[in-house]
């Protein structure tokens, strides 16, 4: 049974914590919005995108979702605005303030 992490906020009492601080389940970090860390975000210009997917593996934050061999819009809930994808795009389909 996966743990319900909504009950494990920082105000949780000691009885509510999971035994041994183990978390049954996976990928619960999606509930933590690292996108709040920065205001600069990459912008996706879909018209220029050739769906080469070269931006996908360079993202340290798994913020470029791929479905049916095509990339989707940025996951701004988690994107920290590092700018690596801007440089990885050969077609100028990603821009970001301050990244040339």
């Amino acid at each position: 049974m996966a743990a319900d992490i909504s009950k494990l906020g920082v105000k949780a009492g000691w009885k509510d914590l999971t035994e041994g601080m183990m978390i049954a389940g996976a990928g619960t970090s999606k509930e933590f919005n690292t996108g709040e860390w920065s205001t600069d975000k990459p912008e996706f210009i879909e018209d220029k995108c050739k769906q080469c997917l070269l931006c996908v593996p360079v993202c340290p934050d798994s913020c470029i979702p791929v479905e049916d061999m095509k990339r989707g819009v940025f996951d701004y809930k988690h994107c920290k605005g590092c700018g690596i994808c801007v440089k990885a795009c050969p077609f100028g389909a990603i821009t970001m303030e301050g990244v040339k």
């Binding site: 049974m1 920082v10 000691w14 914590l17 601080m21 183990m22 978390i23 996976a26």
Partner: peptide, 28 residues
């Protein structure tokens, strides 16, 4: 009940615990 090689449900062991949790974890 929970273990790493449980095909029904993965599990994560050995977290970093911020101060908000550490003392409650010890009491638990």
């Amino acid at each position: 009940e929970n273990y790493l090689l449980n095909p029904q449900c993965p599990m994560a062991v050995g977290p970093y615990s911020v101060t908000d949790y550490y003392m409650e974890a010890k009491r638990n």
